Amino acid sequence: VTTYKLVINGKTLKGETTTKAVDAETAEKAFKQYANDNGVDAVWTYDDATKTFTVTEMV
């Protein structure tokens, strides 16, 4: 189990959160659900070296 981080650069929601998951795909599903629940529709990137997902909402 690995800890993954999500950085949110949204128009109305900004911040960071983490989740523990067995792999990046599982973490991504959890983070996308979190973003969807909070109304963030954005572009996703992932950095495997830092285990960090970044979501940037387009203006």
Score class of each variant (00 low, 15 high):
15 G>P: 05
53 F>P: 00
34 Y>L: 07
57 E>I: 10
17 T>V: 14
22 V>G: 06
33 Q>G: 05
8 I>T: 04
2 T>G: 06
21 A>N: 02
25 E>T: 10
18 T>V: 08
57 E>M: 10
40 V>C: 10
15 G>Q: 13
23 D>C: 04
24 A>Y: 14
58 M>V: 12
29 K>F: 06
51 K>G: 02
7 V>S: 03
3 T>G: 02
13 L>H: 12
14 K>P: 06
35 A>E: 02
54 T>E: 04
3 T>V: 12
11 K>R: 13
41 D>P: 09
53 F>E: 00
33 Q>Y: 05
45 T>V: 08
39 G>C: 11
56 T>Q: 07
25 E>K: 12
17 T>M: 14
22 V>I: 12
34 Y>A: 03
10 G>I: 15
1 V>F: 13
11 K>A: 12
8 I>V: 06
1 V>W: 14
23 D>N: 11
31 F>H: 00
9 N>S: 08
47 D>M: 02
24 A>I: 09
25 E>Q: 12
6 L>S: 01
57 E>A: 07
22 V>Y: 10
25 E>R: 11
2 T>F: 13
50 T>F: 03
27 A>Y: 01
1 V>H: 09
40 V>S: 04
58 M>A: 10
56 T>P: 02
57 E>C: 12
2 T>C: 12
20 K>Q: 13
8 I>M: 10
19 T>K: 04
26 T>E: 11
45 T>I: 08
19 T>R: 05
48 D>N: 07
24 A>P: 09
10 G>H: 10
7 V>C: 07
24 A>H: 09
5 K>P: 02
21 A>M: 02
30 A>W: 15
8 I>P: 00
44 W>H: 00
36 N>I: 15
38 N>F: 15
4 Y>F: 10
43 V>T: 09
40 V>Q: 05
19 T>M: 14
17 T>R: 13
2 T>Y: 14
50 T>I: 05
14 K>D: 05
8 I>H: 03
22 V>T: 11
59 V>I: 11
10 G>T: 15
54 T>F: 11
38 N>S: 10
38 N>I: 15
28 E>L: 15
50 T>H: 04
54 T>D: 01
48 D>W: 05
9 N>E: 06
40 V>G: 05
